[in-house]
């Protein structure tokens, strides 16, 4: 088991390196391959209508004239040990982990990310709990009576849930429950300040996000349960004289849930990297909204930072999923 953990962790580290390389390639290599000069690229890192001096400064700070391997080295070095940027009159220290520095707003990206992360985590975690509980419950009940009225109606709703775009359900929830009948708060309050208020504000966002995901999870759980409940070991469990509830939960659900862990881990990881649309719709100042801000302002470093963060979360989630899977399914540890 320990060697399995070590192997997976090692693989995750490798994966992280690959991810940084790909990110670097997207943000520094691809534009050059597409024919942009160093000047043009530098301009993208500073925003609209910069002066020639600004461009030159950015270019030298990012080392855009350096050979590629040096550029990548600086990129990695920045993340690991921070970077110093010479901004004419002053120098600015971008502390490790330096996920970038916005030359436009003169703000380090990492502190921005960390300050916004609680909002994103609140959103993702709350929604995740909601969709996991409701999705799995609906999926199990549907699977136990396939073809029943309950099954058909819920699978219909689930289909609708998957098909409705976030900006529709989100805005609708917002319109109905925050403006029409103001049951829920409008401004985000940190959990540490006022948990009730925190939940109250986030509730419509959770619901909208959970509607989408729980529909997917209900379908996943349903098909997984249908398959599992036809397995031989379920028949064995019944032959032991176990109560049907125990057969379903201890034997059926346990086996059917394992693949769902995988999907769940990836979804959560992705969501922590910023729920762009949800955060925008509900005016939550989270990580995703930061990226959207960057896009609007034509400011690349925040986008680069959020991309790196999202990749980091996915890799970590992937690792956790692997470990969870091994804990759940003893057969995995072998290989």
């Amino acid at each position: 088991m320990i060697s399995y953990i070590l192997r997976r962790t090692f693989a995750a580290v490798i994966l992280l390196l690959v991810v940084t390389a790909v990110t670097f390639a997207i943000f520094f290599l691809l534009p050059r391959l597409a024919g942009q000069t160093a000047d043009q690229l530098a301009q993208q890192y500073i925003g609209k209508s910069p002066s020639a001096a600004d461009i030159a400064a950015v270019k030298s700070n990012l080392g855009l004239d350096d050979p590629l391997y040096l550029q990548y080295w600086h990129f990695i070095k920045g993340i690991v040990s921070g970077a110093t940027y010479d901004l004419g009159p002053t120098t600015t220290q971008c502390n490790a982990p330096c996920f970038g520095y916005s030359f436009k707003t003169h703000v380090e990206v990492w502190p921005q990310l960390t300050s916004r992360l609680p909002v994103t985590i609140s959103l993702a975690a709350g929604a995740a709990v909601m969709w996991l509980v409701s999705g799995v419950a609906i999926g199990v009940i549907s699977a136990l009576k396939p073809g029943s009225f309950f099954d058909r109606s819920f699978m219909g709703v689930a289909l609708a849930g998957v098909s409705l775009p976030m900006f529709f359900t989100g805005n609708l929830a917002l319109l109905l429950f925050t403006y029409q009948w103001p049951i829920f708060g409008r401004t985000y309050v940190p959990f540490t300040e006022n948990p009730a208020q925190w939940a109250n504000t986030l509730f419509p966002a959770w619901c909208s996000l959970a509607l989408l995901y729980s529909a997917i999870y209900a379908r996943l759980t349903r098909s997984g349960m249908l398959e599992t409940m036809n397995e031989d070991f379920i028949r064995t469990a019944r032959a032991k004289g176990l109560r049907e509830r125990k057969v379903v939960v201890r034997h059926g659900l346990r086996a059917a849930l394992t693949p769902i862990i995988t999907v769940f881990g990836m979804d959560l990881g992705l969501l922590l990297g910023g729920a762009l649309i949800t955060e925008t719709v509900f005016s939550l100042h989270g990580v995703g909204e930061y990226a959207v801000q960057g896009i609007k302002d034509n400011d690349l470093p925040p986008i680069l930072g959020v991309t790196l963060l999202a990749a980091l979360f996915v890799v970590v989630a992937n690792l956790l999923v692997d470990l969870l899977y091994a804990a759940a399914d003893p057969r995995v540890r072998l290989s």
């Binding site: 397995e231 031989d232 070991f233 028949r235 064995t236 469990a237 034997h251 346990r254 086996a255 394992t258 759940a328 399914d329 003893p330 057969r331």
Partner: peptide, 9 residues
Amino acid sequence: DPLSAMHPY
């Protein structure tokens, strides 16, 4: 088939 008749987990 005792392999499939026992719960793998």
